[in-house]
Write a protein that binds this DNA or RNA. Structure first.
Length: 373
DNA sequence: AAATCGGGGGT
DNA sequence: ACCCCAGATTT
């Protein structure tokens, strides 16, 4: 299965040389600060390089040091993470940074044992920080690396299995050239991102094509083997865009989600799950469902009018959301029952709240339609 | 082992 | 429409 020792050193040397011959000028490659490397690696989890770059700059401008992030309000951190997704990354990062400040004197640990205890630092991120920031000879196996190794060494194990990642880590560890862990690990990832791409890999310009086992077998398109993910389950959601009157004229009602779970601690329009099929085409029925959904959260609404629809796909859920403009019923106070907590906000105040993108889109249209406020 | 946890870009 | 992305954590 695994190629002999000669091919391994060939692979490592060629890839390292390819990387050192020229690589992308990425912002985090301009820093030697382990904290900066750390921030970049957390942002890069399941997220493309081009997406991360503006977030990386904004985040480090606001939190340039471990102390700055440790001492910041959680809401500020979440706001800077807005739109990046997987928001527990932000909370875990801040918790971990606080741990480093208190326990390690604001010095990022340089051993696998210590760094792996930090929240949000798993096998990949641990290896990435240790190798890139400290040049420690440990593997950093992400999706790129598994794809590259599965092809060059013709490994047909399902990369979705945790056991396969262990095999890859062992191999990747043995491939690290003496004293060049940081560059080599980045070379593997850079190579996966630019040459050995998921579909239609660029074999004609590949520096190791000559001895690529998958290529020699005509298997490069079939690797890596990866079991298909389940499609996201559909959910119909009914949202209330509640417009303030009197003292709250020009404002709308938003609420903060619970501490745990989906979109934890993000702000949103009040909304609820609708029944499967009923009300799909019947507007009156849908409005009835909205009233019921809002009543469950302690909100009594009136003057309901259809406004827009919006879709949002998570990894495991697909929201088909219908938004209705409405008012709070006379005498209707804001509910103070958990888990939500409500607030009236105008356009200017809204800028301070971290909102999932689907609601950002809704509000962008709403305040464009209603310039009067 | 399977589910949870975002969002966007490429094909 | 589907796939994947510099994954981690919980069940």
């Amino acid at each position: 299965m695994t190629l002999d020792f000669k091919h391994r050193s060939y692979f490592s040397e060629q890839l390292l040389a390819w990387y050192r011959r020229g690589n992308r000028d990425l912002p985090w490659r301009r820093s030697r600060d382990p904290y900066h490397i750390w921030v970049s690696e957390v942002m890069l989890q399941q997220t493309r390089v081009e997406t991360v770059i503006p977030y990386y700059h904004r985040f480090l401008e606001r939190f340039p040091t471990i102390e700055a992030l440790a001492d910041a309000p959680e809401d500020d951190v979440l706001k800077l993470w807005e739109g990046l997704g997987y928001y527990s990354r932000a909370r875990n990062l801040q918790a971990a940074v606080r741990e480093v400040k208190e326990r390690y004197g604001s010095v990022v640990p340089d051993t696998p044992e210590d760094i792996s205890t930090l929240k949000g630092v798993g096998p990949y991120t641990s290896g990435a920080i240790l190798s890139i920031a400290y040049n420690k000879p440990v593997p950093a196996v992400d999706g790129n690396v598994m794809r590259v190794l599965s092809r060059f060494f013709l490994i047909e194990d399902d990369i979705m299995k945790p056991a396969t990642r262990k095999v890859m880590e062992k191999l990747a560890c043995e491939l690290i050239p003496e004293g060049a862990a940081g560059d080599f690990n980045q070379a593997l990832m850079e190579f996966g991102a630019l040459v050995c791409t998921p579909r239609s890999p660029h074999c004609m310009t590949c520096p190791v094509m000559e001895h690529c086992a998958a290529r020699l077998e005509g298997m490069e398109q079939e690797l890596p083997v990866k079991k298909k993910a389940k499609p996201p389950r559909p959910e119909r959601r009914l949202a209330a865009l509640i417009e303030g009157t009197g003292e709250q004229e020009g404002k709308v009602l938003i609420r903060q989600r619970p501490q745990e779970g989906l979109l934890a601690r993000m702000w949103e329009l009040p909304h609820g799950l609708a029944g499967d099929s009923a009300g799909q085409e019947d507007e009156a029925l849908a409005i009835g469902e909205l009233h019921e959904a809002m009543r469950r959260d302690g909100l009594s609404i009136t003057q309901v009018q259809p406004y827009m629809s919006a879709e949002h796909t998570f990894s495991h859920i697909h929201w088909d959301m219908q938004v209705y403009r409405c008012r709070l019923a006379a005498g209707g106070d804001l509910p103070d029952l958990l888990p939500y907590h409500y607030r009236w906000v105008g356009l200017a105040e809204l800028e301070q709240y971290a909102l999932p993108n689907v609601f950002v889109r809704i509000f962008r249209k709403y305040f464009k339609d209603m310039p009067a406020s």
